[in-house]
Amino acid sequence: MLPSPFQFERPSTIADAVRAVGDSGDGMFYAGGTELLLALKMRVIRIDRLIDIKGIPGLDCIAVNGMNEIEIGARCTHRKISGDPVIREHVPALASLCAEVANIRVRNVGTIGGNLCFGEPHADPPTMLAALNARLVLEGSRGTREVYADDFIRSEMETVREPDELLRVIVFPRPAGPVTYRRFKHGERPSVNVAMAWSLNPGRSTITSARVRVGALGSRPQPLTIVEGALRNVAVAEARRAIETALPAALDQLEVNADRHGGADYKRHLAGVLLLRNADEAIIAGGSWPK
């Protein structure tokens, strides 16, 4: 299948890219194209212009900033993130996640920013980035704004990003405890995924706070607030029991779609299984945190 014809522009600055999308007709930012080109080929998206952002310098940097936060440029490919020394040291679970997105060809060109902006519910990165309390920095014609990962995806295939806002960088605090991620999948996209991030006390014996997100079940990643509450100020050794106690009520609160990935009850059950496996990993990892 061939996409409909479009104009192709290669701006070299963010300002030029934002201006180019804002010009007359429908323009869209373009980087890896692993989702966008599929949609263009299937003619479910129509555009007049593709604005290629691959020539803009600085969008593929990964670093720890002066606020002890990790910054990932939106144009970083899954492959780059999976092999990056900063990510492997500070968030190994994110490196592993990116090493398992789709397949080797998609990981070579697909970007984390494109993944987020597409708003596909059956995706790996959004769930973990929400658990990491990430902020997404958008550059638009009206200036810069930050949106929390939790608020970015509005519904299936829809985000709060305006068409002329370019996602520049993803920022999250350097984790203060183990981060874990599990998924279950039939094809290449997750049917259910669960990410959990703990902050530990200096003695590593107690969970001071926990963030738990379940993805792919509804239109966007959902917090398991009951589990988060049950884990607050709980000894690491008691974490599994705390989760097991809170789990039935927490799972009941999830919005779960029945789709080709499975029935609602089945997928809700899987979310619980994956969460407990995350917990088992986090309990072991907690004892040796930081490495």
Partner: peptide, 19 residues
């Protein structure tokens, strides 16, 4: 981009030439 039949190397790395 699922099956890999169209795989070519771009600067040595595999990509899907169909997409």
């Amino acid at each position: 981009e699922v099956c890999g039949a169209c795989t070519v190397l771009l600067d040595g790395e595999p990509i899907s030439s169909c997409t």
